[in-house]
Write a protein that binds this DNA or RNA. Structure first.
Lengths: 138, 138
DNA sequence: GTATCTGCAAAACATTTGCCCTTTG
DNA sequence: CAAAGGGCAAATGTTTTGCAGATAC
């Protein structure tokens, strides 16, 4: 892996990931920074997001959508994804549960476990409220 | 959802999902069936995979890769994904654990939970063996 | 100074879609 | 024979890449 130098653009992308929002897309980041860097290119946003992921500062979350979502790396957590509106919400991880999950793999498989992800898929509260009364099963 | 008629192509795709392999890609399905249906198009494979997913006969698994993976719907299970070679392996679900996971969401969130997925990411046994002795940390 | 970063545009890639003919029921 | 499926090719949308100039160290 080549040496990584500092760059204003990547610094700001890292800041956006860490402070402004929990889950972002490449094009959201691009839109946020266009004013600050009028010549910014989407390709460079992708390049920097990849660098951040490679360096362990960000996670790429490939949900079912047509695009990927990124988040700053922080303490372990799970995700709830709304199938209707795409909203993503963090779910806290009970330590005991994580241990149980990981133990499913450690034992006899011979695989090296790097990380475990849990995704809950469903319909979020807001979307359920939007549903018509007759379609209560949504 | 429009009414779904029978088609030879979709029947064979369903069979492939159920019998031939655990996890398949659209282009693998395409390659398998080209001989049998010389005029088969990749677009049609995608169309039919989408129909099977919509009808609850198949799952789409959007792992980190650049392409999606499909599997026939069967009893609940988790996945181990090798970061190096992309191999996917099923992991059995202890019933008690699944209940604990689901309970994380049911309670106060107000969301409707449709399904829960668990993915273990790491390096599979085969890839670890391939690693040089000096790179034991892989 | 030289390796890395950037903008730009083009390429790559998986997936979807429109059109028109074929098949199913 | 009306509606759904298929083939083909073009379109779509996201992500990556090659190149030439700018920037970091």
């Amino acid at each position: 892996m080549a040496k990584v130098r500092k760059s204003k653009q990547r610094d700001r992308i890292r800041e956006l990931l860490e402070r402004e929002r929990i889950h972002v897309t490449a094009s959201w980041v691009y839109d946020q920074l266009r004013e600050e860097f009028p010549t910014l290119s989407l390709g460079n946003v992708y390049r920097n997001l990849n660098i951040l992921v490679r360096q362990g500062e960000a996670n790429r979350l490939p949900f079912g959508s047509t695009f990927d979502v990124y988040e700053a790396v922080r303490k372990p957590h799970y995700h709830f994804v709304c199938e209707r509106c795409g909203a993503i919400e963090d779910v806290a991880v009970p330590g005991s549960l994580q241990a149980q999950l990981d133990s499913l793999l450690d034992d006899s498989s011979g695989h090296r476990l790097l990380r475990t992800t849990v995704e809950f898929h469903g319909i979020c509260q807001a979307c359920r409220k939007k549903a018509t009364p007759s379609s209560e099963d949504q």
